[in-house]
């Protein structure tokens, strides 16, 4: 399987942020991820594509150990962020997740005010020294989430009252507020209409300046629009990984080609 992964032709010269080696995931008796090896770079958008059930979301959830919350899920292999093994016994997933933020498929604002939604992370991690500090953090996060102008006059309104696209940007702002280094996005636009999708995609492109972004998507067009690197997953295997342009124009593996031309999926 390793042969299938293409490592060549890096367009960016960014350093490797996340390195995964021989990652296997089992759900009970199901072997969901088989021998995945991948290097994800800093300040780059990496897209995971593939048909439903191919394991791309599962692999994404390994990166911040969200799979820990599922009883039957077992992860083996080696995932390093900045050279540190995140499955080391000494690592506290709580600290890890502060460093590796996540945005989910369906917008999931807490049933609290917009302000409290964003302030939640900074509060639990103790990032603000005082109220003014927290106000600053919230404002900065909302601006980075590209939603500040829409909500600045109603920060105390409930987050659940926003539209779908606004909710998802709020969730991004919420994730950014804890000042993570990596942002994982699990099909962030699948519940949104086209206009909201465009806004979120634009936002993802901006976030690239500061974060390493990993996005799982169903839409090949979206992967092509927002990502620099693309990984194609199929039946739990990482089939091909390389520059987005190359994957979509000259895939090496026949399975990748079948997928992007719409014959499997």
């Amino acid at each position: 399987m390793k042969d299938a992964v293409s490592w060549e032709n890096d367009v960016t010269t960014n350093t490797v942020k996340i390195a995964a080696r021989d990652v296997q995931v089992h759900y009970g008796d199901t072997h969901a991820i088989k021998d995945v090896n991948v290097d994800i770079e800093d300040k780059t958008v990496t897209a995971f594509i593939g048909p439903s059930g191919c394991g791309k979301s599962t692999f994404l959830r390994c990166i911040n150990r969200m799979n820990d919350t599922i009883d039957v899920c077992r992860v083996t292999g080696d995932i390093r962020i900045d050279g540190e093994d995140i499955y080391d016994r000494k690592v506290d997933p709580v600290q890890l997740r502060a460093k590796v933020g996540m945005v989910f498929q369906k917008p999931n604002p807490f049933p609290k005010s917009i302000y409290d939604n964003v302030a939640y992370g900074p509060r639990i991690h103790g990032l603000a020294r005082n109220k003014a500090d927290l106000d600053d953090i919230v404002e900065r996060a909302l601006k980075r989430g590209a939603i500040w102008d829409e909500v600045k006059d109603r920060l105390q309104a409930p987050g659940t009252g926003l539209s779908g696209g606004q909710q998802q940007r709020l969730c991004i702002a919420r994730a950014v507020a804890t000042e993570p280094e990596v942002l994982l996005m699990d099909e962030p636009c699948s519940a949104l209409d086209p206009i909201a999708t465009a806004q979120v995609e634009e936002l993802i492109d901006e976030l690239r300046q500061n974060y390493s972004v990993v996005i799982v998507t169903h839409s090949m067009q979206q992967a092509a629009r927002v990502s620099q690197r693309t990984a194609f997953f199929h039946l739990g295997n990482l089939v091909e990984f390389g520059d987005t342009d190359k994957i979509f124009t000259a895939p090496e593996d026949p399975r990748t080609e079948s997928y992007i031309t719409g014959r499997i999926g």
Binding site: L96, V103, P109, F110, Y120, I124
Partner: peptide
């Protein structure tokens, strides 16, 4: 209480008890 709210909280690095006390119980 939908699991997505818990996931959201865990994804931000909250401990289980923080999630329960600050997200699940208020919800």
């Amino acid at each position: 209480v939908p699991q997505s709210l818990r996931d959201g909280s865990f994804g931000l690095g909250a401990t289980h008890s923080e999630t329960v006390r600050q997200v699940v119980l208020p919800a």
